[in-house]
Simulated assay, not measured.
Amino acid sequence: MSRDPPVVVVVDAKTPGNIGTIARAMKNFGMTDLKLVNPPELDPDGEAHGFAGHAREDVLPNADEVTFEEVVANYHTVGCTAITGEDSRRHVRFPFKTPRELADSLRTVDAPTALVFGREGRGLDNEELAQLDEVCSIPASDDYPVLNLGQAATILLYELRDLTVEETQLPDVERERAEEADIERFHDYVGDFLDASGYKPVKRDKTRRLVRRLVGRAHPTDREIHTLLGVLRRATAQLDHRSELLDEYDEPDRWDK
């Protein structure tokens, strides 16, 4: 990534544990620069450091105390709020973006960016939001839309991860799909199995198409497709052997009844 990740600003937090939770989420999702406006005392033996996990080693102790005015003056700012305006007549909180929409729009913003979170309970007030460049809000139940400060920050930072994290602990799922040649072998075995089981010829093509669509949506892994190949190969061989025995002893095929 060519640009620096956004900085995270927490305004007037009252609970040290929330600051620790935010610091941990920052470390999870590739952000390191935490700035605090009017923070509570962060005791090294207190809950902020306890909730921060490994972020107590770098993100939390390196946090800067700043003023709100300094943030506004030096960054492209995104204010985070649970309560939004419904239309353009309430312009302080409208328009707003969801975290996913914000992730898309920030790809085109080539400027130092700050994600600004407000205090517990009432968040950022209208006067503060009016000084910020953008507004972001997390869709939640209309009955209870206000999230815990630490939870809200974690959700937003997760949605921005493609801008801040080059590689995660998860494998590249695009490389896990089985080879196309093996998938085609599976489809051939499906045809052999249908033939050996005496499946009605008029239904075979349709059934094979449905199986192909199902497998196409499933994106089976190499192990999964080879397991299925083994099952079909064994089942088809047993059906073929059964047919040979029936032919040898000239017994009626009860399956045809």
Score class of each variant (00 low, 15 high):
253 D>V: 06
128 E>R: 14
53 G>K: 06
159 E>P: 05
252 P>R: 07
135 V>L: 07
142 D>W: 02
177 R>E: 14
220 P>R: 01
24 R>Y: 08
148 N>L: 13
158 Y>K: 04
98 T>F: 07
90 R>G: 01
57 E>G: 00
142 D>L: 12
201 P>K: 13
100 R>H: 03
35 K>G: 00
214 L>H: 09
253 D>K: 05
34 L>T: 05
4 D>E: 13
252 P>I: 08
132 L>T: 01
137 S>M: 09
150 G>Q: 06
191 G>Y: 03
101 E>H: 03
78 V>Y: 07
100 R>V: 10
133 D>H: 15
1 M>I: 06
236 T>K: 12
224 E>Y: 03
234 R>Q: 13
149 L>H: 05
187 H>V: 01
39 P>V: 03
213 R>N: 12
105 S>W: 05
255 W>K: 15
49 H>G: 00
239 L>A: 14
33 D>R: 14
198 G>A: 05
102 L>I: 04
229 L>T: 00
177 R>C: 06
137 S>H: 06
157 L>H: 03
30 G>S: 03
17 G>D: 06
71 V>R: 04
114 A>S: 05
171 P>V: 01
9 V>P: 09
66 V>F: 06
45 D>K: 15
72 V>G: 00
246 L>D: 00
34 L>S: 04
256 D>L: 15
29 F>A: 02
63 A>W: 09
80 C>D: 00
223 R>F: 06
60 L>G: 09
191 G>T: 07
85 G>C: 05
66 V>T: 10
184 E>L: 14
80 C>I: 14
17 G>H: 13
250 D>E: 15
240 D>P: 02
20 G>R: 08
93 R>I: 04
232 L>D: 01
